[in-house]
């Protein structure tokens, strides 16, 4: 029943990967900027969870709540310090890309200096050491918790975007910034809030990366950014619903590769991204990314 295990694990990992990509997609949708430091924020989230657990014995689920305020603050400051200026430059898309590439390098370097170039992890036994049984397949509790947090984040983001005033303003900017400004929405304020939420989601994803991806190391950021990008490209940029789908597709593809061709599991995420970009560049749902 190898395939059944791959299927269940694929869906659980899919929900997690949706969480890992949600912030990147949200920021892109509102600001048309690809936050290349996204993976590095995930990495920092992982280190935060390890430090709080090791030093103070804080459960990773509590850490979820603890990382939110600093993330919002960092997102706010980063947007007003860097984002606003680059958005007014001559070529915001490319310039922001290059700039966040630099930010990503800075975060990675600081992480090496601060935490050392070692792997840090938490035992998955914090979420129970006995596997849970789903359809006869044994699944670690940590996977269930991570997938559950991913699902909760998706639902909360959906409620935020569709049932709150701020969320409606955010969607207005996503569809057309100029029109949104015309009806009195302040794009800078919304962008700053969105940036904060995006950073927060990445940090939360980082906490559970410890159980879903393995221990965290300072250099893992770039690979995580590419993975998150693959997920949102599969689902279609700018659409939160697409991120959910993209996560599931990615999770299933990864789990089936790991089950049936484990030596190719490092190769798979990047190959999947390339194939999707070339075969269906609009993603499963979303807008075109091709040039004229």
């Amino acid at each position: 029943m190898l395939w059944l295990f791959a299927l269940i694990a694929g869906i659980l990992f899919g929900l997690y990967y949706a969480l890992a990509a949600l912030g990147l997609n949200l920021i892109f949708g509102v600001m048309r900027m690809v936050n290349l430091a996204h993976g590095d924020v995930i990495m920092l989230g992982g280190f935060a969870a390890v430090l709080l657990f090791d030093r103070l014995g804080i459960n990773p689920l509590i850490t979820v709540l603890l990382v939110i305020p600093p993330s919002l603050l960092v997102g706010f400051v980063a947007y007003y310090l860097l984002g606003t200026r680059v958005q007014r430059s001559r070529d915001p898309e490319m310039m922001s890309l290059v700039m966040f590439f630099g930010v990503s390098q800075v975060v990675e370097a600081l992480a090496v200096i601060g935490f050392g170039n070692n792997e840090a992890s938490i035992t998955s036994a914090v979420f129970g050491s006995k596997p849970f049984s789903i359809a006869g397949q044994g699944v670690p509790g940590a996977w269930l918790v991570s997938a559950g947090v991913g699902l909760a984040a998706l639902i909360l983001l959906f409620v935020y975007l569709y049932h709150t005033g701020l969320g409606r303003a955010t969607r207005a900017i996503m569809s057309n910034a100029d029109e949104a400004r015309a009806v009195g929405v302040n794009p800078d304020r919304i962008s700053a809030i969105t940036f904060g939420i995006g950073v927060g989601l990445a940090a939360i994803a980082g906490i559970f990366s410890l159980f879903m991806i393995g221990g965290t190391t300072p250099s893992e950021g770039v690979g995580l950014t590419v993975t998150a990008f693959a997920v949102i490209v599969i689902g279609g940029l700018g659409s939160p619903m697409g991120t959910f789908l993209g996560g599931i597709v990615f999770g299933l593809a990864l789990m089936f590769t790991q089950t049936y061709a484990p030596v190719w599991s490092g190769f798979a995420p990047f190959a999947i991204l390339l194939v999707i970009m070339l075969v269906r560049p609009t993603g499963l749902m979303g807008r075109s990314v091709r040039s004229v």
Partner: peptide, 12 residues
Amino acid sequence: QEFQLIYGVLIV
């Protein structure tokens, strides 16, 4: 890593 830091800051 110190150069990575310097170059990163430089890019920004």
